[in-house]
Design a protein around this nucleic acid. Structure first.
Length: 549
RNA sequence: GCGCCAGUAGCUCAGCUGGAUAGAGCACCGGACUUCUAAUCCGACGGUCGCAGGUUCGAAUCCUGCCUGGCGCGCCA
């Protein structure tokens, strides 16, 4: 029995108890969940539903719990229900019922963990969106890992997700980039407001290779702009692809301008009555929707602001049919939330249509001190710097295992260590150990067969492992719902620990001279199920599940 | 000044949509290798959950105020 099924049984038993006691069923929640208690004395699963609803209907929680427990105990697969404390229900499952999960996992395979919690949602997920004026930096790297993982997790929860990168290829920063390239090509120092770093020289040289006459052309700066942006963006794309982060759409800001979408967006906003003129500029009255000041969309010199393009881009996404727009930004951009949310409301959208996630800062540490210098990019730490230091798997895992609300100090020494203290190795090693057992089984010509006796999985370590396995779909669903990929990583660590402990205490394959027992067979099903779930969990994070280490 | 994030074991962090004795890894101490991979496991040690109030059967979790650290507050992007 899965926790989800059990929770449904708890709810229906509660409904029946309410009826028997003549209580108002309207006080019942639509769904409930069971917990996995840490204390083994509290059974396999625990429910607090009696405590939650008793007060609403003026009932005694313990009495109510008794009524529910009596009905729940009759459910097939439930071995015992105990009442504890003020009204906790501690539920113990039959070993056979608990052991069923291994069969379900084997049947579902790579689809195990998939759920329908976001079925029908059409989500646009935008992340990284770094300017093509330099390599992807540390903050962008965090989103490259977390955003990609979130896309996978939401897809596994039934959502239709388009991952998208917004390419700011219009505006002043691009002009500065072009000027910096041109200066480099001429052998001049970078302009005061330009970009520095060895990559500028590299790109400038590549532009000259492509266009040997660039400096003599009518508009050298335009040549450097077009070619430089193209080269920089190709490099960013290649970096992200190598990192394993896939984007369905690379969207060009320039297209919005070329198609006149900014005007359309402003007209739309004006039609809603939220646009006004002041001091020669055109403004959006974002204060009407909670922003702390109104925002300029067209400057007094007639040029568009960055925010105007944001409005057009937002409208473009909405018109492509997405009902949920998720935008992932670095903490240094959190000041954007107010105006963006206000703009969404100004278009007439419901609160929650636009969702902005903020990721705190990432620092790379060596010997406990921040790494600041990058050979190529000057002062910033780039995605490639991090990957060069600790590798792709460790980078992705390290960046996804923490809540986006926490800033991260990435310690190079820790993340390259081969041991317990390095979580990515801990999890991957569990998978590799399993792969080893499965290889040995094949060597011995042992097959898990078509069936096993689930009641033989009664060892406490087996029970713990089964419960951990059963939890996976709800972990995926909550990671999707809360937009928190780190829950997958923490779960993977929990599962890996449960496996390592099982492995220490429970022999699977026969020793020399022994026959393959039915217990061994049941355990082989359990081992195989664990391999599937570890691989699926790591897969959702974009981290490899190695066969050998 | 205003806003966002964080403050939980010596360290790095989970837990935060209210539940039982607040968890994990590391560090330190003591154990388990003729290994189905010891990159593992077991035990011990370790806590005023930043501080002070409040809400209630129950608060790390919710509310208010304060303290500390990070980030932000342009007709820049």
């Amino acid at each position: 029995m899965t926790p989800e099924t059990l929770a449904e049984k708890v709810l229906s038993a509660t409904r029946a108890a309410f009826e028997a006691l003549g209580l108002d069923a309207a006080a019942l929640p639509a769904v409930t969940a069971v917990e996995r208690p840490r204390n083994p004395e509290h059974g396999d699963y625990a429910s607090t539903i009696a405590l939650q609803v008793a007060k609403k209907v003026g009932a005694n929680p313990r009495t109510l719990a008794q009524e529910i427990a009596g009905r729940l105990a009759d459910v097939d697969g439930v071995a015992a229900v105990d009442i504890a404390g003020p009204g906790f229900m501690n539920i113990t499952l039959d070993a056979a019922s608990a052991g069923e999960i291994a069969r379900q996992i084997a049947a579902a395979g790579t689809a195990y963990g998939y759920n329908d919690s976001m079925e029908g949602r059409h989500v646009n997920l935008e992340f990284v969106s770094a300017n093509p004026t330099g390599p992807v930096h540390a903050g962008g790297t965090r989103w490259a890992a977390v955003g990609d993982a979130l896309a996978r997790i939401m897809r596994a929860s039934g959502a239709k997700v388009i991952s998208e990168y917004y390419f700011n290829d219009a505006g002043a920063q691009i002009d500065r980039f072009a000027a910096s390239l041109l200066a480099s090509a001429k052998g001049e120092p970078a302009p005061d407001d330009g970009y520095g770093g060895a990559y500028i020289d590299e790109i400038a040289q590549k532009v000259l290779e492509r266009q040997p006459g660039a400096l003599e052309s009518d508009d050298p700066r335009e040549v450097f702009r077009v070619e430089g942006v193209d080269l920089m963006f190709a490099e960013i794309k290649a970096t992200l692809t190598d990192f394993g982060t896939h984007f369905d759409v690379y969207f060009n800001e320039k297209d919005l301008h070329d198609k006149g979408e900014l005007d359309v967006a402003v007209e739309r906003l004006a039609g809603q009555g939220h646009v006004f003129e002041a001091d020669g500029a055109t403004w959006l009255r974002t204060t009407e929707f909670g922003d702390d000041k109104d925002r300029v969309i067209k400057r007094s010199d007639g040029s568009w602001t960055y925010f105007a393009a944001d409005c057009a881009y937002y409208l473009d996404k909405r018109e492509r049919g997405f009902d949920k727009l998720v935008l992932m930004l670095g903490a240094d951009h959190h000041g954007y939330i107010g105006r963006m949310q206000a703009m969404s409301r100004a278009f007439g959208d419901e609160p929650g249509t636009l969702e902005i996630l903020i990721g705190q800062m990432v620092n790379l540490l060596r010997d406990g001190k921040p790494v600041r210098m990058s050979k190529r990019a000057g002062t910033v730490v780039t995605l490639n710097d991090i990957v060069d230091a600790i590798g792709i798997d460790a980078t992705r895992y390290a960046l996804t295992r923490f809540s986006a609300d926490s800033s991260i100090d990435l310690d190079i020494e820790l993340w390259t260590k081969h041991g317990n203290d390095n979580p990515v190795y801990y999890v991957q090693y569990a998978h590799a150990r399993i792969a080893g057992v499965l290889r040995n089984a094949a060597e011995l010509e042992i097959d898990k067969g078509d069936a096993y006796d689930a009641s033989l999985l009664s060892h406490p370590r087996e029970n713990d492992l089964l419960k951990a396995l059963a939890e996976f779909p709800s972990v995926v669903a909550s990671a999707a719902e809360l937009r928190e990929p780190h829950r997958i990583a923490r779960y993977a660590e929990d599962l890996a620990g449960a496996y390592h402990r099982f492995y220490t205490d429970c022999r699977v394959l026969p020793r020399a001279g022994e026959e393959f027992s039915e217990t061994g067979r049941a355990r082989l099903w359990l081992v195989d199920a664990t391999r599937v779930v570890l691989a699926n969990a790591l897969g959702l994070l974009g981290v490899t599940a190695p066969e050998r280490m």
